[in-house]
Amino acid sequence: MTLNRTMITASTFLIILLLPLPYFFQDAWWVEILIFLLVLSLFSMVFIANRQIRNLSEQHLDLEASNTNLRNEMTTLKATNKQIRDSLAEYRFLVDHLDAFVFNVNIQTDTWLTTDQLDGIQAFENKIHPEDKVNFYKRKEKWLAGQAVRFEFRTVEASGEICWNELRTESTFNESGELERVTGIIIDTTARKVKEENLAQMAFYDTLTELPNRLMLKSHLNKVLSRAKRTKHEFVIMFLDLDGFKAVNDTLGHETGDALLKDVATRLNACVREEDLVSRIGGDEFIIVFEETSKDTVEEIADRIIVNIANPYYISEKEARVTPSIGISIYPEHGTDIDSIIDHADKAMYVAKSKGKNRYQFYDLELEEYPQPKETFIAKFRKLFQK
Rank of each mutant, 00 (worst) to 15 (best):
D364P: 04
A320W: 00
E210D: 07
E90A: 15
E170R: 09
V264P: 01
A310N: 11
E366T: 15
F290M: 00
H220I: 09
A10Y: 11
K133P: 13
A158R: 03
R168W: 06
F204E: 05
E333L: 14
A345C: 07
L367T: 04
Y314I: 14
A191M: 02
D250R: 07
A310Q: 11
D86T: 05
F13Q: 13
F47N: 08
V39W: 04
I15L: 12
E291D: 08
F381V: 08
H344A: 08
G335V: 10
D206G: 08
D96G: 07
T256E: 01
N72K: 15
D116E: 06
L260W: 01
M238W: 08
M45H: 03
T323Q: 09
A89R: 13
V278Q: 01
D296A: 05
A123E: 02
K195P: 00
L18A: 09
Q372K: 12
L70W: 06
E291R: 04
D343K: 10
A148V: 10
Q386N: 12
S226V: 04
I342W: 08
S176H: 12
A348V: 00
M45C: 10
Q372S: 12
I187K: 04
A302D: 00
E180P: 00
V105C: 07
F362A: 01
Y205I: 07
Q201V: 00
V46A: 05
I16Q: 15
F103Q: 00
D250T: 11
Q201G: 14
D86H: 12
F362R: 02
K133W: 02
S176G: 14
S294G: 06
T251W: 02
R5S: 11
D250L: 09
E366F: 13
L38G: 09
R227L: 15
D241C: 03
F362E: 05
F103M: 03
S294A: 03
D27P: 08
R280T: 09
Q386D: 13
E292N: 11
L118E: 13
I187N: 02
L242Y: 08
H129S: 10
H97E: 14
S354Y: 02
S354W: 02
T297N: 10
A200R: 14
R150T: 01
D303S: 13
R54A: 13
L215Y: 09
N358I: 03
P371M: 09
I288F: 01
D206Q: 06
N213W: 06
I15E: 00
S354R: 07
L221I: 10
D296H: 07
T115L: 01
A28Q: 13
R54Y: 11
D206E: 05
P312K: 10
F235I: 05
N358C: 07
E131N: 14
L40K: 05
F153A: 02
E197N: 15
I237H: 00
P371I: 09
I107F: 10
K218N: 12
E73K: 13
K318Y: 00
E196Y: 03
